[in-house]
């Protein structure tokens, strides 16, 4: 699944480790999501959307 996580994170000047700590996941998980290797669960996708104050559809593409 494609997503804009890396771009959104870079716009805010956040590191993967900082984003991981905020979302309570490992840095490896952030990296895997950004590279499209792992699709997050719906609860995690909601958490990401809340953090960036955006809708899930604006971050993740089907």
């Amino acid at each position: 699944m494609k997503n804009r996580l890396k771009v959104l994170r870079a716009e805010r000047d956040w590191t993967q480790a900082q984003l991981a700590a905020e979302l309570e996941v490992s840095r490896q998980t952030i990296n895997a999501i950004e590279k499209g290797k792992f699709d997050p669960s719906l609860p995690l996708a909601f958490k990401v959307a809340r953090l960036f104050k955006m809708s899930i559809e604006d971050i993740f593409e089907g």
Binding site: R12, D13, W14, Q18, L19, A20, A21, E22, E24, V25, S26
Partner: peptide, 12 residues
């Protein structure tokens, strides 16, 4: 950026 957690006593 600074408002993010540092995770000194968080999930990790």
């Amino acid at each position: 950026m600074n408002q993010l957690k540092t995770d000194s006593d968080g999930w990790q």
